[in-house]
Structures are given as C-alpha cells and as structure tokens.
Computed example of a mutant assay.
Amino acid sequence: MNATTTRGTLLVALACVLVGGSFTANSVLGDYPYAGGQFLRYGLACLLLLPLLGGRGTAPLRLLGARQWTRLALVAAVGMVGFNLAVLAAERTAEPAVPGVLVGCAPVVVAVLVPLQEGRRPRRRVLYGASLVALGAFAVQGWGRTDAAGIAYSAGALAGEVGFAVLAVPVLRPLGPRLLSATVCGIAAVESAAAGLIADGRDWLRLPDATEATALGWQAVVVTVVGFVCWYMGVQRIGAERATLFSGLIPVAAAATAPLVGTGSYGSAQAVGSALVAAGVALGSGALGPLAARRAAPAAALRRSGGQDGRAGRWRRAASG
C-alpha cells in the first residue's frame, strides 16, 4: 500500500468502528422519540461541521444542479434517516441480529454494483474479501427469530447502507468530505423533523434526560462529525468499493462494546467472526497483496539466479567441449 491508500484505509476503519460503537449508544435511547433523536443528532452535527468548512465555505453548493441535489437528498433519506427507520422497524418483529446480518452483506452488493456502474467486471479479490466479511458479520451476530416483515425491513436497511456508500460518490469531489457531511446532515435533520411531525405529531421531540443527552451528543459529535468526515475522506482515497469492506467492522465494534453497558457478551463466535472480517478486509483491500509479493520476490530471484547459473554452466561445458 502507498501512503494515500494506507491513510484512506485507516480513516474508513476508524469511521466504521465509531459507527459500531453507536449501536451501544442506541441501547439507551429506546424510550426517546426516534425522529426527534435523529433531528437533534444530525442538526447538531451540521452546526458543528459548518465552522470546519474552511475558506470556500458553502460556495460549491451553488454550482450543484438538480440531479446532484436529488442525490444528496437520497443520501440523507435512504442512507441515514431511512436506514435507521428500517432497522427500527425490522426489530419490531425480528431479533436485532437479522437486520445486522443483512446489512453485513453490503460489501458484497457494493463489490458487484460499483463495477457494473463503471462498465467493468467485479474484482475477484474484492468480491472474495467481501464474502468473507459478510460471513464474519454473520458469525459475530448469529441469526434470530424473524418473519416476512422483519426480512423486508432488514433488506431495506441493506439498501440504505449501500445507498450511503454509493449515492454520495459523484458529489464527493465537488463538495469535499466536510461540506458533503454538513450538507447531508442538514438535509437529514429536516427530513427527520418532517417524519416526526407526520408520525408522532407534537410528541416528536422532547428534552432528553442526562443519559439520553450524553448518548445523542456522542452520536452527533463522535459518530457523525468525526465518523462521516473520516468515511468520506477515506472513500476519496480508496473508493467506495474497497471502503465498504470495512463496514464489517461495525458489528465487530458493536459486539466488543456491548459488554461495557451490559447489553451483550463477547465470546468465541464473536472472536471467530472478527477474525473472518479481518481476513476479508485484508484480502479485499489489497493488504495481503504486498505481503505475498514480498514473500514471492526472494523465490523469484532465486529462480532467476538458478536459471542464469544453469545457462552459464551449459555455456562453459559447450566451450570446453
């Protein structure tokens, strides 16, 4: 890996670990209005991101066309608000592992979808790595009770995860990671408020207690501001195809942090799944390629040296004959 790839890898890995930790924070927000919580999270994140935009500020937004604004609205609606709504709806009739397992298949979908959009074949190494990541996510979370509705909403959560990874790519270059994150957070806050007013009326927002405020603050500052910017900076460097491999770290981080708040345990199944995720990420991202190349280099050099020595011996024998 070169420096750019290494930096991108570290950035997306950090982002996914932070998102995984947010599932632990979600466990203390069960009684808080969903839409109101999303509004506070994304609204606060947007406000915190605005001072970080630098000299250009929001000027690049004026150059966007209707198609690009539609794409941004879809990122917020599908990949942020819709994703979380789908997970919440799935868990009404399915155990949490079910949407988790389907979302864990996102690397496989992206490994196929992105190349098709670009008019090329999927990269075999990335596809194999994505399959290992999905298998590892399944091992970490297991499977649980569900019904048709739970499967359908879980599939919607998968679509949201894929949409978040893929839809934003065309607007990442003109906006940059910070402005893109601030924009989609602002749009998601508006969409959350609208959804709350429609679904819950006046009860869509209330003052959080100390525990809820801490969890919402963590999600806004750490998971959204830091996590989103790191994610899009990483995608800039290594592309959505390889970046999505690291989403397998989300269930691993969730399983590792769950014991801290007494909502789960980390056992042998989680350890095996974590190892599979690590192997899939290493294979698909190309981290194993340089290692294999380094191991193969001495053998290749030895073969070349042996071949040259053999030819030299034949020449000497011919000359002496």
Rank of each mutant, 00 (worst) to 15 (best):
A256N: 04
D31R: 13
C185Q: 07
G289W: 12
A77N: 09
A149G: 11
A139Y: 01
V112T: 03
R92S: 04
L49I: 06
T4E: 15
A210F: 12
Y32L: 00
V133H: 03
A111L: 06
A155V: 13
V166Q: 03
A134Y: 01
S27C: 04
L72P: 08
G150V: 01
V19E: 06
D31L: 07
A86L: 05
P51H: 10
V229C: 11
A94F: 03
P208H: 02
V281K: 11
V171G: 07
R41D: 12
L197I: 15
G144Q: 05
G201S: 05
L49K: 02
L44S: 12
V169I: 13
R173S: 09
T263A: 12
A319I: 07
A159H: 11
L53E: 00
A168G: 15
T183C: 03
A182Q: 12
E118K: 12
L283I: 11
Y232S: 06
I250Y: 12
A299N: 07
G201C: 09
V78N: 06
S131E: 01
G310T: 13
V17E: 12
A243G: 08
A279C: 06
W204K: 05
S285Q: 14
G82W: 03
G30H: 11
P51E: 02
L102P: 00
A253W: 10
V184T: 14
L288I: 06
L72M: 14
G196H: 03
W143T: 00
A318N: 06
V221K: 00
S285Y: 13
T4V: 10
A155Y: 04
S285V: 15
V169H: 13
A240C: 04
T257A: 13
F246R: 04
F83I: 00
L113K: 09
T93K: 06
R121E: 04
G306A: 15
A139Q: 05
L47Y: 07
V221F: 09
D200A: 14
